[in-house]
Structures are given as structure tokens and as C-alpha cells.
Design a protein around this nucleic acid. Sequence first.
DNA 1: GAAAAAATTGAACGATGTCTATTTCTTTAA
DNA 2: TTAAAGAAATAGACATCGTTCAATTTTTTC
Lengths: 198, 198
Amino acid sequence: MGRRSDHSREELRELILEEGHRQLSEVGFARFSAREVAKRIGYSIGTIYNVFGSYDALLLALNGRTLDVWLAFLEQRLAGREERRLDAAIEAYFDFALGCRHAWTALYDFRLPEGTPPSQDYRDKVAAITGVIVREIAAILPPGLGGEALPLARSLLASVHGHCFFALNGTFAMLGETDPVGAAKARVADALARFGAG
Amino acid sequence: MGRRSDHSREELRELILEEGHRQLSEVGFARFSAREVAKRIGYSIGTIYNVFGSYDALLLALNGRTLDVWLAFLEQRLAGREERRLDAAIEAYFDFALGCRHAWTALYDFRLPEGTPPSQDYRDKVAAITGVIVREIAAILPPGLGGEALPLARSLLASVHGHCFFALNGTFAMLGETDPVGAAKARVADALARFGAG
DNA sequence: GAAAAAATTGAACGATGTCTATTTCTTTAA
DNA sequence: TTAAAGAAATAGACATCGTTCAATTTTTTC
């Protein structure tokens, strides 16, 4: 078959991303197959390469979509919340990771070849999620410590990430930890206490 | 070719693990190939299946070897150290992960099929590394808080892991963090301060 | 309406993990 | 000593994967 006009370039891209994200969410990164995605949308594997150029680019785009969903999820959880907003953000971190287990895990399982930085677009998405936490922490920190918000947010994100990662990959289960969320909240509280916040 | 007697079963197992760990350390989990390991030791792929039964079992054994090396590295770094032992352990965490980048990353990239818990042997190795941290924290905590050592060790390991993970996977670079080790130490200090230790 | 450009395909390639029938060697038993 | 039993190693087949590319068909352009 040759050229067809079933979908515009953009429609096709969206079609692939939609089905691709469904696949990734269902089977996980290790079993994800670009061929399978092509088959399911009724196109051939070559078409995916036409649109995305490579497997890596496709996966980066899929992970980008996960980041989009994650950001929306986080903000929705915070919307209207008055107290304990940082705790809510931590809960949202865990709930998203657990609820979108495979897609969330793929964010970290997939890595571009060494020396290949992700696109600016992707970096912006990561920065957007971080930005939410920076904002929340800045609102909590005592006046005059605003400059600490970014470094602290990075570090607390890493701490929460570690707890969430261990919760999902079984490390915590191995070690008998039954309340990863509580532990993560406690560590964040410890850090904020140092700055006289919380 | 049929049966040969170049190596005993144990020698063969060791041969595969040695070359396999070398491969894993060089090319990383994503590019690791059991076939390639077989080729390099002069056996066929079938032999690896004879000895290990499956690809998953081989990788679990390889990761187990990484844990062995890691534990030895950690204890060697702590040996003879009088002060700031926990800081030394954090540095060791990062140094090992950076120095054995691919092998360390494989510990988390590789996952057994869902519902398949790792062998007792593997869990023991994870517990052994954790045990070192439990011991160090117990030595620092005020008297009467000994029961907090294990939960705190789990949580601090997760925090340090998150920092180390973000350092290696580029997240920290994206966010402008230039001193991941310092940030990790700070978070650990925050937690210890809550317990009146440090 | 012809030429140029764009899009889509499917076959080919070299890998991978996995499995099995077969061959070969070692061990056991008569 | 020799034949049968058992264990170990292999080659090859299978299905899959990402990747590439010549060929084909449609759309666009002039």
C-alpha cells in the first residue's frame, strides 16, 4: 500500500501516542513493542519510524505524555486544598505512581543513549512538575529563605522518589516497611523543621 | 558437540557469572546479552540455560554478585573510620553507584515478572547491606531509641537512593543540582536531628 | 496532464530469549 | 570389558524485536 489520507500527520502522531501509551501502561516498558502499536492502529511499523524517526524518540514522547498526565494529576490534587498541601503532594506522588505503575516506571526504566540529552520539551515537562513543588515549598518557608526553595524541592523530590521507588520495586517489602508514604512524609517534615517551617 | 569435561558445574557457573558481570558492567542492562556471554566463554547459549535455567535467573545471580561487591565496598570504606561514619556510608553509596554505574543501575532496571519474589539468597544480600546501615544508625541514636534504627535506616536508604538515582539518571542535572551528595547528607542530618542524634 | 514530492508498505537484516531433539561424553552395572 | 544409563553440551528452529530501505501509491505542484 502506498500513501493514504486516512489521517493527517498530527492525527497520526496522536493516534500513535494514544495507543502507545495504552500499551505502555498495560504491558510495561520491558514488554512494550512499537510493532504492536503499529498493528493495533492499522498501520505498519515503517509509519511509526516516519513519524517519530526512532524507537527512542517514540518512547521519549510517550514518557512526555506520562509527565503531562502526572502534572495534571498533581495540580488537581492540590486544587482547593488549604492545609497540608505538601503532604497532599506526597500522597499524589505515590498515588500516581501506583495507579499508573507501568507508565510511571517507564519514566525511569527508559534511558536515552549516553551523551544524548532529552529534548527541551521533555526537560520542560520535568521542570514543570518540579516547579509545583518549588512553589509549595516557597510558600511554607519562612520569609527570607525563598532562595532555598529550589534546592530543597529538588532534594525532597529525590527523597520522596526514593521512597516511592522502593515501595514499587519491592525493596521496602523485603525490608518489612509497611508505610512508605508515612516514612516519606516524615523525612520531608524533618527537612522542613530544619528551616523552621512545617 | 556433546558433553565435555573442561569445567565442573561449579566452575562453569563461576565462569558465566564472571564474564556475565563483566559484560553487564561494560554494556549495561539494556544491551546485555546472554548469548554474548556464552560466546565469550566458549560455550553455547544452551549451556547457560542448563546452568541457570532462565535469563531471569541469570540476571538475578548477576545482580546478587553486584550486591556482594557493594557490601564489601561499603564495609571497607567504614573499616577503621571513627567519625562521621554515616557520611562515609553515603559517600560510599554514591561512589559505588558511580564507579559501577551499569552494574548498579541493573539492580533496579531488571525486574522479575510480577508476582515472582526474588530468591531468599538475594533478599539476604539486600538485607545485609541494609543491616550495615541499621547498625550505624543504632550506634548514633540516643539510648532507648534502638527500635527506631531499622525503620529509620530503611527510610534514609530510600532518601539516599533517590538522590543517587537522580544524580545518575540526569534528573538532577536537568534541575541544576550540582551537589547531590551534599544534599543527601543534609537530608540524613535533618532526620537524625529529629531524634536528637548526629 | 505530466512531473515532483510525500507517505506507506512490507520484506529483509541481524539481533534477542527460549525451547527441544540430537549428539557426545561420563558413569554405572553386568 | 563392554553395554546400558545418565548427564551435559550443542545446533538449530522459532517467534519476536528495532531498524532500514526499495518499491509502490497517492497527493501535490506546475
